[in-house]
């Protein structure tokens, strides 16, 4: 008879990601860079919010972006139009970035050349939640056009968010959604902070920038 034996492993499946994420965070801290991981569904308005943030902060801080998308060139061009360096990361088939993608994205970048890094994290509310990138703050963007029950369908990502942005509130009446319900749901899921915005109308953008400033000053 073959000998049968049990081998205890107790191995963290995401241990390599966690390890690289903590190395990324140490690297950012050493260079005084504050990093925002911007998550949310396709079309929720992540790129637009980042564009507004660049415009409102670029006088005070040197900004860079990682544009993570299935095909990254489109968003990357939009961000670059604001005069900041952008590193496109095309994931091809993956629906989220992981710490390893971010590590490689930074290989040929002069880390002394910027103070704030926005990472746009592809697009959905499930996969990115399980992967730490080494960021200082997690932002989840959700638009009213996703339906006002979307927050309650994805409680974990909102629970772990440092900021939830309910975006496109100006079109809420046209898509039959209540931005107030989404705000309340994000609070009840335990999101640390929640704001309502409309990038098109400029609503709530002062709160968006004020959140970013408070994180930058705290790191």
């Amino acid at each position: 008879m073959h000998k049968v034996s049990d081998v205890k492993m107790g191995q963290d499946i995401l241990r390599i990601n966690r390890h690289i994420a903590s190395e990324n965070r140490e690297l950012f801290d050493r260079h005084g860079i504050t990093v925002f991981n911007v998550m949310g569904a396709i079309g929720s308005g992540k790129t637009c919010l980042i564009e507004h943030a660049i415009e409102m902060l670029k006088g005070e801080y040197r900004i860079a972006c990682i544009a993570g998308d299935v095909v990254a060139s489109y968003d990357s061009e939009r961000m670059a139009r604001h005069g900041v360096p952008v590193i496109p990361v095309s994931t091809g088939k993956e629906c989220h970035l992981d710490a390893h993608f971010v590590e490689h994205a930074l290989e040929d970048v002069d880390l002394a050349s910027f103070d704030v890094l926005f990472i746009e994290n592809v697009g959905n509310l499930i996969c990115p939640a399980d992967f730490d990138l080494g960021e200082h703050a997690k932002v989840v963007v959700v638009s009213v056009s996703e339906g006002d029950d979307i927050v309650l369908k994805h409680p974990v990502i909102f629970k772990t968010a440092d900021l939830t942005v309910v975006n496109k509130v100006d079109i809420a009446p046209y898509v039959g959604a209540s931005a107030e319900k989404m705000h309340k749901d994000a609070v009840s899921c335990g999101s640390s902070s929640v704001i309502l915005t409309s990038c098109r109308k400029g609503e709530g953008l002062a709160s968006w920038v004020s959140f970013l400033r408070s994180v930058i000053k705290g790191t």
Binding site: V4, Q11, D12
Partner: peptide, 21 residues
């Protein structure tokens, strides 16, 4: 209080394997 953080339940582990030699 709603001011809590998740301290367990997000882990993914390989607990053990059974092998023949």
């Amino acid at each position: 209080s709603p001011h809590t953080f998740i301290c367990q339940g997000r882990e993914m582990l390989i607990k053990s394997i059974q092998i023949t030699k």
